Computed example of a mutant assay.
Amino acid sequence: MKVINDTQKTYNTVIILDYGSQYSKLIARRVRECNVYSEIINPSVAKSELNHLNIKGIILSGGPSDINDSSSPKIPDWLYDFDVPILGICYGLQAIIYNDGGKVSSDSNSEYGNAEINLISNQEPLFQNCDQNFNVWMSHGDSVSEIPKSYELLASTDSCKYAAVKFNNIYGIQFHPEVVHTQNGKQIISNFVNEICKIKPEWTSYNFINSAIDQISTRVGDNKVLCAISGGVDSSVTAALINKAINENLICLFVNNGLLRKNEADEVINKFKDAKIKVEYVDATETFVSNLNTVIDPEQKRKIIGNTFISVFESFTKRFDDIKFLAQGTLYPDVIESATEDSP
Rank of each mutant, 00 (worst) to 15 (best):
D6N: 14
D6E: 15
D6W: 02
K9P: 00
T10S: 10
Y11F: 15
V14M: 04
Q22H: 12
S24P: 04
R29P: 00
R32Q: 11
R32G: 03
E33V: 09
N35G: 01
Y37R: 05
S38R: 09
E39A: 11
I40R: 01
I40M: 09
N42F: 08
N42L: 08
P43H: 13
P43T: 06
S44E: 12
K47Y: 09
K47G: 01
K47F: 08
K47Q: 12
S48H: 00
L50Y: 12
N51K: 14
L60P: 07
G62R: 08
I67W: 11
I75Y: 10
D83C: 02
D83M: 01
I86C: 08
L87W: 03
G88H: 02
G88P: 10
I89S: 08
C90A: 12
C90L: 09
C90Q: 09
I97R: 07
N99G: 07
K103D: 14
N109T: 10
G113N: 10
N114M: 08
E116H: 13
N118D: 15
S121N: 10
N122F: 03
Q123A: 05
Q123W: 00
E124G: 00
P125C: 06
L126P: 03
Q128R: 13
D131S: 15
Q132C: 01
N133P: 02
W137T: 02
S150P: 00
E152H: 12
L154Q: 10
Y162R: 12
A164V: 04
F167M: 09
I173E: 00
Q174I: 04
F175A: 11
V179K: 13
V179L: 13
T182N: 08
N184I: 05
G185W: 14
E195L: 09
K200P: 00
P201H: 13
A212Q: 15
A212F: 12
Q215E: 10
S217T: 10
S217E: 06
R219C: 05
K224W: 04
K224Y: 15
A228Q: 12
I229S: 00
S230K: 06
V233M: 13
V233G: 06
V233S: 10
V237S: 02
V237Y: 07
A240S: 13
I242F: 10
K244D: 04
I251P: 00
L253I: 01
L253C: 05
L253Y: 11
N256L: 06
G258F: 11
G258V: 04
G258N: 03
L259G: 01
R261E: 10
N263L: 04
K271V: 03
K271C: 07
A275I: 05
E280V: 04
V282D: 04
D283E: 08
T285P: 02
S290G: 09
N293W: 03
D297C: 01
D297Q: 01
D297G: 00
P298D: 05
Q300V: 13
Q300S: 08
K303I: 03
I304W: 11
I305C: 00
G306N: 15
E314K: 13
E314S: 06
F316G: 06
T317F: 04
F320M: 05
D321Q: 13
K324Q: 15
K324F: 07
K324D: 14
L326F: 15
A327D: 11
Q328V: 15
L331H: 09
P333A: 06
S338P: 10
T340G: 07
S343C: 01
